[in-house]
C-alpha cells in the first residue's frame, strides 16, 4: 500500500509555497499532489519519496498531517483508458473516495492515485480485474 501524506492548509496566500519550501529544504521530493479545497481551507495530499520522514518534518514545522493508505494504478495512456479501469472498479464494488493523476509516468502508461472506501483487500480485487497496482518502492522511487 502506498503511504499518502495529507495535511491541513488554510486557504491563505503563501501557505502552499511554504509547505513546498519546507519539504524542499528537507530534501523531500514530491512525486504527486492534489489539493482539495473549500473557501476557507484545503487538504493537501502528497505522494513523496519518504513518507515517514515527511510526516515528522511536517509535524516539527507545526503542520497537522496524517498518513493514509492509497493505491497507485497503471492505466493505458489512451482515450478511455481511465474510464475502463474505473468501470472495472465499479463492477467490483470498489467505491472511489478521491483520485488524482501522477506527475511523471513510468512508461507509456498513465499513473493514477486512488483512495477507495475500504482499502482492505482492494489491491487483490483490482488485480483480479486486470488493473496493474504499483508497489510502494516503485512509486516512491519514480
Amino acid at each position: 500500500m502506498i503511504k499518502q501524506i495529507s495535511l491541513f492548509l488554510e486557504n491563505k496566500k503563501g501557505r502552499l509555497a511554504h509547505v513546498c519550501r519546507v519539504l524542499g529544504d528537507a530534501g523531500i521530493n514530491i512525486r504527486a499532489l492534489s489539493l482539495a479545497d473549500t473557501a476557507d481551507f484545503g487538504v493537501l495530499r502528497l505522494i513523496v519519496d519518504d513518507p515517514a520522514r515527511t510526516n515528522s518534518v511536517l509535524s516539527e514545522n507545526g503542520f497537522v498531517a496524517s498518513i493514509t493508505d492509497v493505491m497507485a494504478i497503471q492505466v493505458p495512456d489512451v482515450p478511455g483508458g481511465l474510464a475502463a479501469a474505473l468501470e472495472k472498479m465499479d463492477k467490483a464494488g470498489l467505491d472511489v473516495e478521491y483520485m488524482y493523476a501522477f506527475i511523471g509516468t513510468a512508461s507509456q502508461d498513465a499513473l493514477v492515485i486512488i483512495r477507495v472506501d475500504s482499502i482492505e483487500g482492494a489491491v487483490e480485487i483490482m488485480e483480479g480485474c486486470g488493473i496493474n497496482v504499483l508497489k510502494e518502492e516503485q512509486v516512491y522511487s519514480l
Binding site: 499518502q4 482539495a36 479545497d37 473549500t38 487538504v43 497537522v64 496524517s66 493514509t68 473516495e97
Partner: peptide, 13 residues
C-alpha cells in the same frame, strides 16, 4: 485543527 480533529477528507472537516 488538532491531530485528533484532522481528517484527510474535506467532507470530514
Amino acid at each position: 485543527v488538532s491531530r485528533e480533529m484532522f481528517s484527510d477528507k474535506v467532507k470530514g472537516l
